[in-house]
Amino acid sequence: MYDGGKIITGIIIFLLFATFPFYYNIGKAHVKPDPKLDTPVIKQLKEKKCVESKAYMRANHMQLLDKWRNQALREANRTYRNEEGKLFEISLQNTCMRCHSNKQKFCDECHNYAEVKPYCWDCHFVKEAKEGGAAK
């Protein structure tokens, strides 16, 4: 083999790089995310249901939020009529976070686990959160 040393070094560097996620996370015990729904507002709800079904929200809340913001801000449609015909004011801060006031135990729980960092919180507040409240 020509330049065997260089090639083998190259392969080793590549393997080290490609397997980085594995050895970087060795020893970090990951707890299964367990989002909490026990906020005072939710506890008082008679029918504990979000704007859409739990399954839909779990899978598609990001697409729904994206549509919400475009409709509210760009199309002046600030009311959402869900599958059952119920009306909701479109507002992350005033509608979503009114029930889910426990951002850390609800949003961050899964977002941290999945290593996603939505920039919602750069601008939107969480009422009871401490200063900043950014997803860390």
Binding site: E52, Y56, A59, N60, Q63, K67, Q71, E75, A76, N77, R78, T79, Y80, R81, N82, E83, G85, L87, E89, I90
Partner: peptide
């Protein structure tokens, strides 16, 4: 394909605006 799904929901201007 996966992002579609909700058929009946829609967006309307807020009543009283």
């Amino acid at each position: 394909i996966f992002s579609r799904g909700l058929e009946a929901s829609d967006f309307i201007p807020s009543p009283g605006a």
